[in-house]
Amino acid sequence: MAGGHVEGRVGGVGHLVVHGHSPVHRLAPEAKVVATFAFVICVALTPREQIWAFGVHAAVAISIVALAGVPTRVLLARLAVIIPFLTFAVLVPFVAGGEEVDVLGVGLSRDGLWGAWNVAAKASIGATASIILSATTSVPEILKALTRLRVPRVLVSIMSFMMRYLDLLVDQLGRMRTSMTARCHDPRWLWQAKPIASSAGALFVRSYERGERVHQAMLSRGFSGTMPDTEERATPGADWARAALPPVVALAALLSAVVL
């Protein structure tokens, strides 16, 4: 019962960081969080017809990937999360209505093509930005950054507990599945899903009980309803300035795209 079982397990949120000492890694986390958010907003607002503006956004993102030293292989593997969106984007030109254009003998919707391009470009550039953030900033750092950015403490605490216990939960689920497999459970069809549903229930109850025990452990160390602030450190002005660079370039591209 005592948690000797989790060591050696690889995976989970703790392993997103690509270790390095690049200027991107060294930036204050709160500056990175704000910069990423601002950059993604600029990308999302860029009109889809201004292809060159997306070129600028992509160039900014790719140069930061290079600066941070995130390997291309890692970047591409993590970009896989947007595949469902891309699949959807590919379908759009076939199903959308309106004026048709002839592409390699197939009549595709012009509006649909723009829609597909819009989704593909924004999703891949946006995802790249968040991959850079998660690859250069550990989860605890991001959580501390949110606290410093005055995100309500309760929300940050909830996220923090979720991150802390997610690995444990996944581990517990893994052990339950192992024990099912060991007893020849080999689900292939929907009607064989009952044990999985009941293990989800068991997991819920266990998590609830753990929640109670953690709360008791917190009370016994003087918890009175608010998480103590154990660290306060001013964000260096230079970090804000450096982190502002990518969103400022993206904003310039956005504004020119809108005006021109």
Binding site: M163, T230, E231
Partner: peptide, 29 residues
């Protein structure tokens, strides 16, 4: 000190976890 150490260690780093109690007691940062 509770039976399951995973119940007792709920913060993101050992440093924060050990600081949790004294910070609640008002030990200055």
């Amino acid at each position: 000190v509770f039976q399951d150490a995973d119940d007792q260690l709920f913060m993101q780093s050992v440093r924060e976890d050990v600081a949790f109690g004294p910070a609640n007691l008002g030990v200055p940062r």
